[in-house]
Computed example of a mutant assay.
Amino acid sequence: MSLRSPLGRVRGLGSAKEGVGHWIAQRVSAVGLIVLGFWFVTAIISNVGGDYATFTRWLSNPGNATMMILTIGVSFWHMALGLQVVIEDYVHGGARAPSLIAVKLVSFALAAFGILSVLKVAFGG
């Protein structure tokens, strides 16, 4: 028998007071990807049938290069957030931390590679 009240027994249990920021980031990146996805599909359709020179001229426009960089960055950020949730839910034991680190590093490396590729094409490097 305990002398603690029902409120005292459950105090400290329940919400971990974290995770809301991650949830909001996933939703914001998803909405951003909807907008960027429409732009990307429109951009691809407008460049169908063009050659490399036409594409590089199109990508050298600062607005198009910026939108492409945003698409790449938000896509890999959203991917990393989603994979983090999957790993946290389904990977247990000692493989969790290395998996989370690998996802973050691979996502960052692929995003950096994509962004640098856009910059190289845009600036004619």
Score class of each variant (00 low, 15 high):
9 R>L: 12
98 P>T: 04
51 D>F: 00
78 H>Q: 11
32 G>D: 06
94 G>N: 02
74 V>M: 06
39 W>C: 02
36 L>D: 03
80 A>D: 07
35 V>E: 09
52 Y>I: 03
48 V>E: 08
101 I>F: 05
35 V>F: 13
24 I>Y: 12
17 K>P: 07
37 G>H: 04
80 A>F: 01
28 V>T: 10
9 R>H: 11
45 I>T: 08
98 P>F: 00
56 T>M: 01
44 I>P: 00
96 R>S: 03
62 P>W: 00
11 R>H: 12
49 G>H: 04
17 K>D: 15
5 S>T: 14
78 H>E: 09
7 L>W: 09
74 V>K: 01
59 L>G: 01
64 N>P: 05
10 V>L: 02
54 T>K: 05
73 G>I: 13
59 L>R: 01
69 I>F: 04
88 E>Q: 12
75 S>P: 05
30 A>R: 07
36 L>H: 04
23 W>E: 14
74 V>Q: 00
80 A>R: 04
4 R>H: 11
42 T>H: 11
76 F>E: 06
76 F>A: 02
88 E>M: 15
85 V>F: 11
73 G>H: 05
50 G>E: 07
52 Y>M: 07
64 N>E: 03
18 E>I: 13
11 R>W: 13
10 V>G: 02
10 V>K: 03
42 T>C: 13
99 S>R: 00
63 G>R: 05
13 L>E: 09
33 L>M: 13
90 Y>D: 09
99 S>I: 03
23 W>Q: 15
15 S>N: 08
19 G>F: 02
81 L>V: 06
2 S>V: 10
73 G>W: 04
76 F>T: 11
23 W>K: 15
9 R>N: 13
73 G>Q: 10
74 V>L: 13
105 L>W: 06
71 T>C: 08
33 L>I: 06
104 K>F: 13
46 S>V: 06
21 G>V: 01
38 F>C: 08
74 V>F: 01
76 F>K: 06
26 Q>Y: 07
40 F>L: 14
75 S>A: 15
91 V>R: 00
60 S>H: 05
82 G>E: 00
79 M>E: 06
63 G>A: 08
77 W>E: 04
66 T>M: 10
2 S>D: 14
25 A>W: 07
62 P>N: 04
34 I>T: 15
32 G>C: 06
43 A>L: 01
83 L>N: 10
13 L>D: 09
90 Y>I: 09
54 T>A: 10
78 H>D: 08
75 S>V: 08
17 K>T: 14
96 R>P: 02
82 G>V: 03
39 W>R: 02
69 I>T: 11
34 I>Y: 14
29 S>N: 08
66 T>K: 05
87 I>D: 03
55 F>Y: 13
66 T>R: 09
63 G>N: 09
54 T>F: 04
14 G>K: 01
98 P>G: 01
3 L>W: 11
10 V>H: 09
91 V>Y: 04
57 R>Q: 12
71 T>L: 14
102 A>F: 05
85 V>T: 15
90 Y>M: 07
21 G>L: 08
107 S>W: 05
